[in-house]
Design a protein around this nucleic acid. Sequence first.
DNA 1: TTGTAGGCGTTATCAG
DNA 2: CTGATAACGCCTACAA
Lengths: 342, 342
Amino acid sequence: MSPRRPSSNHAPSQVDVARIAGVSTQTVSRVMSGQDNVKEATKQRVLAAVEQLGYRVHAAAASLASGRTHILGLIILATDRFSSGALTVGIERVAEEKGYTVTTATVPDHAPRETVLAAFDRLEGQGAEGIILGVPTDFDSPEMRLRTQRTPSTLPTKSRTSSGDGIIIDQRHVARLAVEHLLELGHKTVWHVAGDEYWEEAIVRREEWEAVLRERGIEAPPVIPADWTPESGYRAGRTLALIPGATAVFVASDEMAFGVIRALHEAGRVVPDDVSVVSVDDIALAAYASPALTTVRQPFEEVGAAAAHRVIATIEGTDAEAAIRPVHSELIVRASTAPPAR
Amino acid sequence: MSPRRPSSNHAPSQVDVARIAGVSTQTVSRVMSGQDNVKEATKQRVLAAVEQLGYRVHAAAASLASGRTHILGLIILATDRFSSGALTVGIERVAEEKGYTVTTATVPDHAPRETVLAAFDRLEGQGAEGIILGVPTDFDSPEMRLRTQRTPSTLPTKSRTSSGDGIIIDQRHVARLAVEHLLELGHKTVWHVAGDEYWEEAIVRREEWEAVLRERGIEAPPVIPADWTPESGYRAGRTLALIPGATAVFVASDEMAFGVIRALHEAGRVVPDDVSVVSVDDIALAAYASPALTTVRQPFEEVGAAAAHRVIATIEGTDAEAAIRPVHSELIVRASTAPPAR
DNA sequence: TTGTAGGCGTTATCAG
DNA sequence: CTGATAACGCCTACAA
């Protein structure tokens, strides 16, 4: 039997349901929001009416009345970059679990600060109760401060500079894992192809790479700059291929590593025999690179989940700290690293 | 000067603005929605008050009153798959241009029909005025019909079976481009590593691959099934490596092609000398595979944009057909294909 | 356990 | 060009 509308042609409302069920609208409201102080029989009558009419609560009306929207805002990169997709999946999962909905605003890479602020405002305007900032942002700028003060916000990655409001992946640890692996294999030094320094992660990884070398009394060779794209990795690889003594590189992302390896290959340097390459992310294709990539896995999906938990906790006044699960990076050794040829 | 709130601590409303500007709320409403029937001087006073208070229209209230939400729903795969990210970017771009906001619901791959329907309902409940279905769906099932009838919806890919409501990439053309390329290179036949047949695209590509061969009087070899993942591609590649006569494969996606090539490599078959590989998508890494992938580029971002244009046109009663720009696939020849060795 | 009253902030409609 | 008034559909608070 197909559901039938009351008479007019617009969506059924609480009033319609109440009339059919022979109760007040208030009772309908109680049933819909799952309150338990409704007699079972009444509840069933209401539910029957709901079913019959195909009634659904009107989100806008509900949120106007209650002051709650249950909307989470997500500001993310307008690219198909692996990390963005995985992050989103984690956020979305938790949001749904917790009864939230997520609205996304994308911003181009290297967007000026105003673009991010504008995205933030747009999301707030849409009613977002909390916002997850998936792009580099100066969390401590006055403009941002102003906003994060009125709307709970979180950064998926821990920032070097800012007040500890970022979370989750310790990028120092990531870099250390990678560089130490190479050193333990017996390489005398490690070169570094860095990510775009517009991103905090890139800076931290570079700093830690230097720090690890310094600890062992090794002077860091010059950084080879790049920008996360495979193209930039390729260019970096060509540079690297020119340096005879280079036997080991720490590349700041898998996607760049693909480019680096290709350039090395073309220059006749074999990976890992001549040069060992370790990178970061462990994207799905990492295991299918030639050779398979040794890489530090970043659990983006968990990071997204943790970020979502965190904002939701803040929104709801639950203990935010308790809601955070630390997330672990892990070195995955595959075929792109080996001891240096003697 | 920092904006100051009226007195209480909740967000300023139209009333506050009206009072300060010395006009009625109606006039504020008119200014905010950009109607032109307001005297310039009045408008400026209103704008000044808006600025001073930091007023923004309350989306929920506006949509309750107007009946419009300007929300677009997007149902998409809960993975970091390349295509999903790119699609989203295109949708988001157009949505923003047109003053819409996008709310996403993710569903796992291979989700049963009910999951997709539930996502649809959730989005509708959130007020989505139009929905873009980025996952395989039986667009013609009664349950879906029921929904698409009340909420404009669109499929980014043209379906074999359904009523022409799908759009944009002609998968037959994609397959034809790939297979003919191989044939023109001189290969006697072409093998096929198929995508997950849960997806329309996979089926269409396989069908067309067969059709192209048949046209030339070639009997199609057995399909090698896979599921879009690089892992499945790897397995398919091992199978392929066992077949001595196989000199050319059409792989249904780049991500699988990475797996195929690795397996071939490990089996001692050189690409493209022994086996030519052509795939589909042209993901960012395709150019950095070893060897660089010959592939049929799919402009996902444009597809997303076209899909968004389409739903919005439907929502607004504009001519939907006019709003669609056809989108072109293109063969990108790189290093993974070559004439067969004689 | 259930109902009544009032208001959430905006836009539509109709007057002026 | 501008304003008064009535919805929009629901929820909170309070009362029964």
